[in-house]
């Protein structure tokens, strides 16, 4: 019994590529709706009422994106009204809503993705491609806070020593530039010690192995195969199942056949997988806890 974030990072990464890949490369409205719904639902299930304010921002962004298209593009046959001698058409409006759903949906997927994939998990996922890449990333991740902390320290010291003598911008900028230049020296100095420490512990003596804190369990493989097969069905249906939808000049679509409906169902299931897993876990957990 694991919640979605505890699955193997490589599997989670593959899942995210599947779900956002379709959302980004297709523009079939039912897919967009499923992606938007699945993305927002996952975020809400994981965060509850936290970050509630941010949803208003995304709602606003959605409205702006949806409204931008009809204001810019005047294709389409159904004129709703005329603004500044320009026709605003129903088709352009619907197209705007569709692309806004795509963008906001993908943004929500990535919000959850960054929450779930901590630096450690990203490194693991990168490490499955190459252990060296993982090491370089790990060192880089470590260096960023180190550098910014040292920069703050130097700045405090120099303030207390009167480097920024006068309260004016030119002096401040000049001081900052010098601090940056000494920080580069400092970084290189430190690099020598780090390199020694690496050599002393046998870096470069042979082929590196990698310690993995995440293992593949049975349900990881189940999730991986499920994601990939749902992706396969959806892709096949897109190419062969008559899932076409065009906005311009007039809205035109084919009624999907049985294969097409399978494709839509497959993508809906794919987009809802994490929410299903989370719900299942919370129900199971509630049941188990009632027995403690």
């Amino acid at each position: 019994m694991r919640s979605f974030q505890d699955y193997n990072p490589a599997v989670i990464a593959v899942y995210f590529f599947c779900v956002t890949g379709i959302a980004m490369f297709s523009s079939y409205p039912p897919f967009m709706a499923a992606s938007l719904f699945g993305g927002v639902a996952l975020y809400l299930v994981r965060n509850g009422r936290k970050h509630a304010k941010s949803h208003f921002f995304f709602l606003l962004l959605f409205l702006i994106l949806a409204a931008a298209n009809p204001l810019m593009s005047h294709n389409g046959v159904t004129v709703l009204f005329i603004m500044n001698d320009n026709p605003i058409t129903l088709e352009a409006l619907l197209y705007g809503i569709n692309s806004a759903a795509m963008i906001i949906g993908v943004l929500y997927w990535f919000r959850s993705f960054t929450q779930i994939m901590t630096s450690e998990k990203l490194l693991y996922a990168a490490g499955t491609l190459s252990p060296k890449l993982a090491l370089i990333l790990s060192m880089a991740i470590r260096f960023v806070p180190l550098f910014s902390r040292q920069s703050k320290r130097v700045q405090d010291t120099q303030t207390a020593m009167g480097l920024f003598r006068d309260d004016n911008i030119v002096d401040d900028i000049r001081g900052r530039m010098r601090i940056f230049s000494i920080l580069v020296t400092w970084g290189l100095e430190n690099g020598i010690i780090t390199a020694d420490s690496m050599a002393a512990r046998g870096y470069g003596t042979g082929k590196r192995s990698q310690m993995k804190r995440f293992r593949f369990r049975r349900d990881d493989i189940v999730l991986l195969l499920t994601s990939l097969s749902l992706l396969g069905i959806t892709t096949a249906a897109t190419f062969a199942g008559g899932l076409t939808f065009s906005f311009y000049p007039a809205i035109k679509y084919e009624t999907p056949g049985i294969f097409g409906i399978c494709g839509i169902a497959a993508y809906c299931l794919l987009a809802l997988l994490p929410v299903i897993i989370e719900t299942e876990v919370s129900i199971k957990w509630r049941y188990l806890r009632s027995r403690i």
């Binding site: 630096s119 450690e120 490194l123 252990p131 090491l135 790990s138 060192m139 991740i141 470590r142 180190l146 430190n190 010690i193 780090t194 420490s197 690496m198 512990r201 046998g202 870096y203 470069g204 003596t205 042979g206 082929k207 590196r208 192995s209 990698q210 310690m211 993995k212 804190r213």
Partner: peptide, 26 residues
């Protein structure tokens, strides 16, 4: 210097670093 000898960003990875270099199995 304690700070500069550390190579990686996580404690467990730092512990594993030397063994990884030697190609010790997982």
């Amino acid at each position: 210097r304690p700070e500069q000898q550390i190579v990686t960003d996580k404690v467990w990875h730092e512990l594993a670093f030397g063994l990884e270099n030697l190609g010790v199995p997982q």
